[in-house]
């Protein structure tokens, strides 16, 4: 399998990259780690005229605290996120999610920016990004804008990013005390993509007996990842019990048209969304209790 020919650009600075994507519009594709784009190009499902390789840009791979937020550079690899001590302490959902992406080699190479911009319906990060209410920073030649995660995913393989924009950074508010997170995934046995992946982020209240606020991101189930608002509504303000969690999880696929393919029918996906939502919520609560007991 061999990609079709293309014109290659390896800009040295972000500005240069932005000028290139502006000039070539939707005839250009950005190449970061390459693990979303290159398989498509090798299959010749994608044959962009211009490939703009931003993988050599310096200073776009970092995980750091900035103005009370955690900022992650778009070129940060899955494995850097998986093993980040900062994230393990302040946003463990992301390392947990990253650890479940593909395999070691893919994680060593794939980037969070590339993965989010590709918006594969079976991608793992979108669930976590949604559950964390992250912000996505996009730049073009005239400046940057901030896109809330909730608005970022538009449809299958389609995001809010305009032609001419480059995703540069992901920003996340640090985890408040008494909160807990978990990512639970049913993987497709051949490719490792999520058939259903559920990220839960819960904030406990009332002496850790109730859920003050829950954020649930679901990937794999539908054409795009989404926030399971019906589940969240059913949890918010409720005293924790198995029944509350179970009942809330029943709403996981509410209002969503599930995908259906060789590996899982829509019906099965819908049911698995329920099961994995329940598991993710339960584990997030456990984490919230465990962590607050630990006195962090």
């Amino acid at each position: 399998m061999i990609p079709a020919s293309f014109e290659y650009h390896a800009p040295k600075t972000l500005d240069e990259a932005l000028r290139l994507v502006e000039r070539h519009g939707d005839e250009a594709k950005l190449l970061a780690g390459g693990h979303s784009l290159l398989p498509l190009m090798k299959l010749r499902l994608a044959a962009p005229r211009y490939v703009i390789d931003i993988g050599h840009l310096r200073g776009m791979s970092y995980i750091r605290e900035e103005n009370g937020q955690i900022a992650i550079g778009a070129l940060t690899t899955h494995s850097e996120i998986e093993h980040s001590e900062l994230l393990a302490a302040k946003c463990p959902l992301l390392p947990q999610t990253a650890a479940q992406i593909g395999d070691v080699q893919v994680r060593n190479r794939g980037t969070i920016g590339g993965s989010l911009a590709h918006a594969d319906p079976g991608g793992d990060y979108p669930a976590a990004i949604l559950a964390l209410d992250a912000e996505i920073i996009a730049a073009n030649t005239s400046g940057t804008r901030t896109i809330p995660a909730r608005d970022f995913f538009v449809d299958m393989l389609t995001t809010q990013l305009h032609p001419g924009e480059i995703l540069t950074q992901i920003r996340i508010a640090p985890r408040p005390p008494q909160s807990g997170t978990a990512y639970e995934k049913l993987h497709q046995p051949a490719s490792g993509f999520a058939i259903v992946g559920v990220a839960a982020n819960v904030l406990l209240g009332n002496g850790r007996k109730a859920i003050e606020r829950a954020a649930i991101g679901i990937t794999g189930l539908a054409a795009k990842a989404f926030r399971a608002e019906a589940v969240e509504r059913a949890l918010n303000g409720k005293t924790i019990s198995d029944k509350v969690i179970e009942d809330a999880s029943r709403n996981a696929a509410q209002g969503v048209e599930p995908l259906s393919d060789l590996h899982a029918s829509g019906e099965y996906r819908r049911e698995m969304a329920r099961v994995f939502t329940r598991r993710a919520i339960a584990r997030a609560i456990e984490a919230a209790r465990g962590v607050s007991r630990g006195g962090v």
């Binding site: 497709q188 046995p189 051949a190 490719s191 060789l262 590996h263």
Partner: peptide, 28 residues
């Protein structure tokens, strides 16, 4: 557990790559 060559009604082999035809991994 995993393997099956699936042809659709039109005779298209829809398990046409290792992305869709699962082999056992060490972790299985």
């Amino acid at each position: 557990l995993f393997e099956e060559a699936v042809y659709d009604e039109q005779g298209q082999l829809i398990t046409g790559e290792l992305m869709d035809y699962a082999l056992p991994h060490a972790s299985d």
